[in-house]
Design a binder for these strands. Sequence first.
DNA 1: GTCTATAAGGGGATAGAC
DNA 2: GTCTATCCCCTTATAGAC
Lengths: 201, 201
Amino acid sequence: MMESISTEEKIIRAADKIFTQKGYAATRTREIAEEAGTNLALLNYYFGSKEKLFRNVVREKLKMLLSAMGPIASDENIPIDQKIKMISENYTQLLLENEDLPLFILNEWSVNKKLFADLIRETRQHAEPVIEKQLRESGVAISVEDLIVNTLGMIMFPFIAKPMILSSGLVQKDQFAMFVEKRKEKIPEWIKKITVKQEPL
Amino acid sequence: MMESISTEEKIIRAADKIFTQKGYAATRTREIAEEAGTNLALLNYYFGSKEKLFRNVVREKLKMLLSAMGPIASDENIPIDQKIKMISENYTQLLLENEDLPLFILNEWSVNKKLFADLIRETRQHAEPVIEKQLRESGVAISVEDLIVNTLGMIMFPFIAKPMILSSGLVQKDQFAMFVEKRKEKIPEWIKKITVKQEPL
DNA sequence: GTCTATAAGGGGATAGAC
DNA sequence: GTCTATCCCCTTATAGAC
């Protein structure tokens, strides 16, 4: 049997789509209602206000973004090489299916730091000490901060800068997915080279 | 003598500040006018509309972002190692003085691709073939696309993800400038390691 | 729960005095 | 060139019928 989707769920999905594409400020509640196949009044009936609906969407999206990394990074039993590999694969896959996700989150975060401060408190991760310890033990030449920023940057930046990359002709539109699929494999190798102590002679 | 600033210039500076912080959609023309110490009518007197004023600001900001890279990258007489070093230094310096710049440009770009398509036509760079040639001659193991995306990502990502980086406690607020200053020196070394052909045994 | 109609206010833009 | 007052549309939110 086809599970029929509740109106509430329809609104959530529509809000998800429109907010993620356009951001909070540019989004019109009427457009969400229309996308959901309903009307403005229902939106307020279920969620109270535009802002409450937005918080609802952001909470899920943020969880999505963090959960692709946190649980892996903070697991003491996975060696660091393996972590990078898993995160590179998980994230790339996630972002291929949610291309607007990183820019949406990072942009709204910079505009509304209060909101995210609240949400982050709910979803704290504790990966840093674990990685710190693993790095010390393997004796590599990089700090935790640089390792994390480089890894996430390599994975996320192509999606964030996608319009610029396409516009410059650096990558063709229909080649973009292939481009990041290939990077997915290369990133762990690059990170390994970076963290290695000795220069090759 | 103090050069007094024209009203037009005051409005441009205010628009620059507010648009860059909040983005187009969240910006109120009244707020720009207030920031400029004048009123809404003057804004329209000088620039015609919110959108025209925005285009004015974006054009300058985009030029700023591209000119920190383009002229260096497309110069055939600078060896590739040296280019990376210069771009890393120039960009980091520029972004330290304009922290909102990359997120602003990339976000507005993704929201309004038409606008940027127009602007890009005015400021075309031709770095890619030059770098392609230099890479081929030096026989390194990386594509132009990956080299450029990795370099720009390493430089820009910390600024784009700054709120997340601070919120996670990965870097302290008052240590952020130091963090990117240090990266500025490390990035060319990292890129060199990545582009090297042989794995160290 | 769902809809139509409408309230209440904010937003960009302009008229017209100075 | 600059300002105040005002227009008018668009937006969010709600009242109230069904």
